[in-house]
Amino acid sequence: MRSKYFVIPNNKKYKKVSEVNFLFPLKGFNVGKPCLFTVDELPIDSYIYINRLLDEEGVTKLDSILDNNKDKIKGIFFEDLGVLELIKEKKYPFETIYYPSHALCSEATCQRFLKECNYVVLSSDIKYEDIAKFHDLSHIGSVIFTKLPFMYSRRSLVSNYQKVHDLDITSKLVVSNKSSQDKLVFDENEYGTLVYDSTFYDGRELLDLNMSFYIIDFSYLDIVDYEEWFNNYILKRESIDGTTGFLHREMIVKLPPKEAKR
């Protein structure tokens, strides 16, 4: 890895920032990412991002892309373990970075995966105090700025709703929970629907843990000056109107007896 920071760009006219790598969501292999890149649009030695779960057709297409672009791709961040196995089986020379949305919540699991791939990205539903207790963060990264993903469905949830009720909606839909202030964004493309938070996630306190690398996701921002944003919010740590996600939230696993179903 060349830098500690990976930025997911929000437009195709992104300008290089000295201290960061770019992480390019690959077109045809992502859900819920508004700015997607074809292989032709990638610079040499790019890191690409694949957040889709792949069917057989998808993995075959990916194989063809990887095979024809070995010199262009430096590393791959992926959700589907099939991508890792494909890279291993075909002996492709890419760095492998396992980036599951919800499956990496313990150091034990991270360390086991690090015997299989080069780096891992912690899932967002893990507590800060748990991460702080990790013995070795040398190959473990984390997202520190994004809109947290909450659900990934293969279904076309927005289109189906639109069709049934004869509504006019673009691919994105923002709905509200009836009993709280939570707003959820349903973002759909041909590969399914990603549901994510309507507010930004601010996990910059994880910078204090000196993890191996950090991901900054500009997908849902309007900004164009990355350098300025990086200076203000990463180097100077100016305040951001956002949430800390699950970093400090206590989760309930087992309900008190009277609430639990028998």
């Binding site: 949305s101 539903d125 909450f150 939570d182």
Partner: peptide, 23 residues
């Protein structure tokens, strides 16, 4: 599930009940 199984933490977000640990 409407989601791919295991790829959902709506329960965590809206109820503090951990979906992928049985809640």
């Amino acid at each position: 599930c409407t989601s791919y199984s295991g790829r959902c933490i709506l329960s965590n977000q809206l109820t503090n009940r951990d979906a992928n640990r049985g809640g």
